[in-house]
Simulated assay, not measured.
Amino acid sequence: MNTIKKINDELAIAGQIAPDELKSLAQQGYKSVLNLRSPDEQGFQDGEQLYTQLLGLHYANLPTRCTEINPQIALKVLQKIAEMPKPALIHCDSAARAIAMVLMYISTKQGISLEAAFKQAENFGLIEDVMSVKT
């Protein structure tokens, strides 16, 4: 599972994941998968939701376009992460969107405002990196 990076006991990130990686996640005790990719993105896995659910994992797809990330979009993603059973995997095509969202989620859980967390992600170059990745 070279593409999956554990961030803490609750969250991991990845780029596009393969069916064997989903199976391994389920075996490791993960409970949820949040896919930030849009169905019209090249390489989107149409069967990911069904396969994830067959493995007994909770699945959500919250398409988040690189060029549209702003505090309002981030809030929707952070709310989805908060409500998902943990541990959870957050993924997109390259992991850029996933890491930006996970770091903002962790920051807000530590008491930082969403605006400050978003600014922090911008200052670290995460939002810029996300914006430079083509959807």
Rank of each mutant, 00 (worst) to 15 (best):
N2Q: 05
N2E: 08
T3L: 04
K5S: 13
K5N: 11
I7H: 03
I7A: 04
D9I: 09
L11G: 12
A12E: 01
A12T: 03
A12I: 07
I17H: 09
I17P: 07
E21T: 09
L22N: 06
L25W: 08
A26D: 06
K31P: 08
V33D: 06
N35G: 06
N35I: 12
N35D: 15
S38Y: 15
P39E: 06
P39H: 09
D40S: 01
D46V: 09
Q49I: 09
L50E: 14
L50N: 09
L50Q: 15
Y51K: 04
T52I: 05
Q53R: 14
Q53Y: 02
L54W: 07
L54Y: 10
H58Q: 14
Y59G: 12
Y59R: 06
Y59K: 15
A60V: 13
P63T: 12
P63A: 03
T64D: 00
T64F: 08
R65M: 01
C66R: 12
T67Y: 09
E68T: 07
I69S: 02
I69D: 04
P71T: 06
P71I: 04
L75V: 01
K76V: 02
V77D: 04
V77G: 00
L78K: 10
Q79Y: 02
Q79P: 04
Q79W: 00
Q79I: 01
Q79D: 07
K80G: 04
A82D: 14
E83G: 11
E83L: 14
M84W: 01
M84E: 07
P85G: 05
P85E: 12
P85L: 10
P85M: 12
K86F: 10
K86Y: 10
P87F: 14
A88Q: 07
H91I: 05
C92Q: 02
C92I: 04
C92F: 07
D93W: 06
D93F: 09
A95N: 15
A96K: 04
A96L: 11
R97H: 04
R97M: 12
I99T: 14
A100I: 09
A100H: 03
L103F: 11
L103D: 06
M104C: 06
M104L: 11
Y105F: 10
Y105K: 11
Y105D: 00
I106C: 00
T108Y: 01
K109F: 07
Q110D: 11
G111Q: 01
G111A: 06
G111K: 08
G111I: 03
I112M: 13
S113N: 13
L114K: 10
L114I: 14
E115Y: 00
A116K: 14
A117D: 01
F118T: 11
F118A: 10
K119C: 08
K119Y: 09
Q120E: 14
Q120F: 08
A121S: 13
E122F: 01
N123T: 13
N123F: 10
I127C: 09
E128R: 15
E128S: 15
D129N: 11
V133D: 00
V133T: 05
V133G: 02
T135A: 05
